[in-house]
Amino acid sequence: MKITDVRAHHIRIPYDAGVASFRQGASAITGLDMVLVEVATDGGLTGWGDAFAYVCPRTTLTAVEEMIAPQARGLDVPDAAGIPAVMEQIQRHLHLFGRYGITMFAISGLDIALWDLAAKAEGVPLHRLLGEARRTRLPAYASLLRIGTPDNIAAECDKALRLGYGAIKLHETTTAAVYAARKAIGGDTPLMVDMNCPLSGEQAIAFARECREARPTFLEEPVWPPEDFATLADVRRQGGLDIAAGENACTLHQFRQMMAAGAVSHAQPSVIKVGGITEFTAVAAVADELGVRIVPHSPYFGPGLLATLHLMSVRSDGLVEMFYLKRAACLWRGAADTDSDGNITVPQGPGLGYEPDRDVMEQHRVA
């Protein structure tokens, strides 16, 4: 079975996050941009992947069309054991364009699609190719967008708990926000704080110490630049809190550097950024060796979400991140949403488990 074509689809689904906002610079973002990667074969099977594209969809789409498609067309579809070698060769061919960022986002999309095809060829759900499934339902946490005011933060935390979520993550940078959330959710509910890389090492240490009584599970990416792993390790040692990072890291190589530096207690590979399922599984293996927990970056709603569910189903613990917002449509007809207990069911169909709704794709396609 050979790959006959690789197509990239730019889909934008509007959302409503209430009092919260998602911004790029001074601009508010009101739609979830996705670049779906469709891999067609002469055997009639189609694989689906997902390349990170929240604020760079046209750039990611072009990378898939100009860099990935020419590499993939005409290739024999590998089985699961053969995918890593194929993807390493493609990484080698494209390393001139960077080992991080857009190039790896595009590579991630192809890798996920190849794993989807490999599982479909065997007629099994993807997790069967990854190991023994330990969980069929995964706990999700509500990943709140930036809100700002303590009163609104408390109100949104309360709403999320009433919807069944058992853990909360903030995207805030003030101690007032952290303590408002802790007061709203009580002492037993896990609380995480994603800072998105704003502080120096000294500032981050001070912030961590000020937040200790609120007992966050971890501070996520408190330091700029995110690849300053030595400073991140200092914050972890001196701040008195666990540290999470990794959504901005690509490839096993960078994660190995991060974990070897002692920078993180929780590693956060993003399957649509890191290099796909192949790199994610390699990162998870090293994390297990070094005693670092895996809590993936996964606030997305395309094939990358389904891939994350399969990857986490073969692990005995770890939460799935879900943006706390209302979408105008769902590619999976609601099948990959959280239930009333805040859990998501792992798909059991062949490959990723669900096929995207073509009608939704057409309705929300960006020309």
Rank of each mutant, 00 (worst) to 15 (best):
L130M: 08
L145A: 15
P150A: 12
H127W: 10
E156G: 10
R134W: 09
E156S: 14
L129P: 06
A140R: 02
R135C: 04
R128H: 15
A154Q: 09
Y141A: 02
P150L: 07
C157Q: 03
L129Y: 06
I153D: 08
R135I: 02
L138F: 02
E122M: 06
S143C: 13
C157A: 04
A142Y: 00
A155M: 10
R146A: 15
C157K: 07
D151L: 14
S143G: 06
T149D: 15
V124A: 14
P125G: 05
T149S: 15
T136A: 11
P139A: 01
A155V: 14
E132Y: 03
R128Y: 04
T136E: 10
L145K: 07
L145E: 08
S143E: 04
T149G: 12
E156W: 05
L138H: 01
T149A: 15
A154Y: 02
L129E: 07
R128N: 11
A133R: 15
S143Q: 04
G131V: 01
C157D: 02
R128V: 12
Y141D: 03
D151P: 13
G131I: 01
P150D: 10
C157M: 05
P139N: 05
R128D: 08
A140N: 02
E132I: 00
C157L: 07
L144M: 15
R135G: 00
T149Y: 09
T136W: 05
I153W: 02
R135Q: 05
E132N: 09
G131C: 06
A155D: 06
P139G: 07
T136P: 00
A140Q: 03
L144W: 07
R137H: 08
A142G: 04
R128A: 15
R137E: 08
I153A: 12
P139M: 02
T136H: 09
L129C: 06
Y141E: 01
L138R: 04
T149H: 14
P139S: 03
S143H: 00
L130F: 05
R135V: 01
H127E: 06
I153R: 14
A154G: 08
G148C: 13
L130R: 05
E122Y: 05
P125E: 08
L145G: 12
P150F: 07
L129I: 03
E132H: 07
E156F: 11
L138Q: 09
A133F: 08
H127Q: 09
Y141M: 05
C157F: 03
S143R: 00
L145Q: 12
R146N: 15
P139R: 02
A155R: 15
H127V: 09
R135W: 02
A133Q: 13
R134Q: 14
L126W: 00
L145S: 14
R137Y: 02
R135S: 00
